[in-house]
Nucleic acid binder design. Sequence first.
DNA 1: GTAATTTGATGAAACGCTTTATCGCTACCT
DNA 2: AGGTAGCGATAAAGCGTTTCATCAAATTAC
Lengths: 360, 360
Amino acid sequence: MAVTIREVARLAGASTAAVSATLNGSRGSNIRVGTATQSRIKAAAQQLGYRSNPVARSLVTGRSQVIGLMLPYVEGFSDDNPFCALVTSGVIRETIQLHYNLMLYTSMQGTNFHHSHGDHLPKVDGVVLVMPPSSSEILLHCETKGIPYVSIIREPIPGTMTVNSDDVDGAMLATRHLIELGHTRIAHLLGDPDAYTTTQRLAGYTRALAAAKLPFDETLVRQASFDWRASYSATRNLIELPKSKRPTAIFASNDLAAEGAMRAIRESGRQVPHDVAVVGYDDTWFATTTQPQLTSVRMPIAEMGASAVRLLIAAIEGTEISTRHVVEPVSLSIRESCGTNHQQIPDPRQRGSASCTHNP
Amino acid sequence: MAVTIREVARLAGASTAAVSATLNGSRGSNIRVGTATQSRIKAAAQQLGYRSNPVARSLVTGRSQVIGLMLPYVEGFSDDNPFCALVTSGVIRETIQLHYNLMLYTSMQGTNFHHSHGDHLPKVDGVVLVMPPSSSEILLHCETKGIPYVSIIREPIPGTMTVNSDDVDGAMLATRHLIELGHTRIAHLLGDPDAYTTTQRLAGYTRALAAAKLPFDETLVRQASFDWRASYSATRNLIELPKSKRPTAIFASNDLAAEGAMRAIRESGRQVPHDVAVVGYDDTWFATTTQPQLTSVRMPIAEMGASAVRLLIAAIEGTEISTRHVVEPVSLSIRESCGTNHQQIPDPRQRGSASCTHNP
DNA sequence: GTAATTTGATGAAACGCTTTATCGCTACCT
DNA sequence: AGGTAGCGATAAAGCGTTTCATCAAATTAC
């Protein structure tokens, strides 16, 4: 059927070894081919329309030039949460750039990994794991089989490779922004209690307060679990506090949570941002659809995907890398939910302009 | 390194053939294994932790249980156009369902297909092509190599397999909706002149007019090329027509085009929907962000991906299929841009409720 | 009771490639 | 001259699987 290396060799009057070395530039072998035979071989290959068979190559080299991307079990590419899509976008770009191919997996709800993939899982040279649960089957699989992997959004455990966004800085950016607008009583709606990002964002929040010599008031820090409902009721409680204890600004750990907060504020007869300012996190598309539009912390999601691929392929190919834990810088997308009536002091450490997306 | 079939065979006191047949249920071979040896083999495999090597299998069978998904050259997963992401979502789901694996490609701008993928493209059993340009390199590749492929959104050429949404019906839905609201002079902003969808939507538009015995007026059909700018100026022209010739409704071939139209209408001092009603197409996320929110034709994008996979795998496995050209039904998402002051007569042929997405 | 079929099992030949070990040859130092 | 290095090239040994051709034994058919 397909034209093989042997036929090329025969036509060119050379050995298969020579053909292999010429056409698919051999890595570790020490065979040499003269320029004369090389051109004969190339001509023959051209004439026969030879294409090397990557499967056969893979079988002998043990490498496939393919990396996997494992998306979290949550319905991968949903309309309202572009996170996975953006990661994928960055991963694709970098994968092509580095001449690899990409296999897409998703650990769907209710499917056993080994049942669905494990058995006929084409060999990949490594995997990018997006928000892997620490008990994840595939994580174990990689660990035991010695398959290189890098996790996106996960606690940077020594011995592993991770890519995260700078959540501490993001929270600081948000909090400092509120402080610079004159707020002194800033509440924080916490995310999922055992998420890595939650502790990071809390740390950023407290650090920004400390830097401004503002007191940390634990009554202003509420559990909300990235949840609309929880944020809504937490916010209701906050704004019913006596005036001296009441926050004038809320830093939510999520755009969704921010929406919940804004709703609660509006329903109490107050105005955003006039009475209470709100900052969100993630800068998802509906940050621009809320009323007023939401100021939110943006992370370079696609870049995180690309970084993960770079890290992974470096590990696969044994390239030296400076760090095994990448932390991507974040920025603040300033919109309307914090008000513009106060003087806005630009961030001195500004990295990447705080971009502001508008409707088309 | 890895445990092979031969070691299992030795431990079980059987031949590699028996092991192969037992563990990876052979398709076309006629070898038989008794239950006694089968259980011995299974035990041995279990004990050694044997996993079959799909690459080796692939080499001999010529099949890989992998299908490819080729996304169009436009920046695949962009934030504001969830089309690719949604297709991918459907493709993934169905791929897993049918026990295949998924390889993700994208023919990025400026990259030569054979250079970037062709050489070390792991063998796939078939490809799903999303909106392939007819001159597409990969299309040629598949055609000559005899690789099965199915195209999503492409003219259903005989001898190929395609998945489209019912654009004729979509345009009829939109147009009829406007007719039922009492409009008699309905303009249509055409899409890209050589896009298949454009002619389909135009056909639906004229058909709906004919069914209502309304005259077809070619001055009301304007070129707009799915473009905001073009739609904007086309609409300006339309609303400057003398009153008797002026449209009271506009059916745009795109949400973006609809936005352009609405802008032009507003800037002329008129109101949407009071003076001119507008319908969009695609029902993308910003249909809910426009002011007023846009009534738009929704197509089941993820379903299209899933259908494509079903078609493809049927072709790969030689299963009989009823049709090689799937046409997915569409629905109308009714919002504000056509007004609610008139009686809304529900669509009698209603298939899949006309869903209406709201902000969270 | 013999022939024909079925059952259970096996060795070995691919599949298309990479790579090791080997070899002849020329050229270059001592 | 002898030894060594380097170049150009090759035959052949795998990589881990599937499957073909074969075969002995057991079962069934006639």
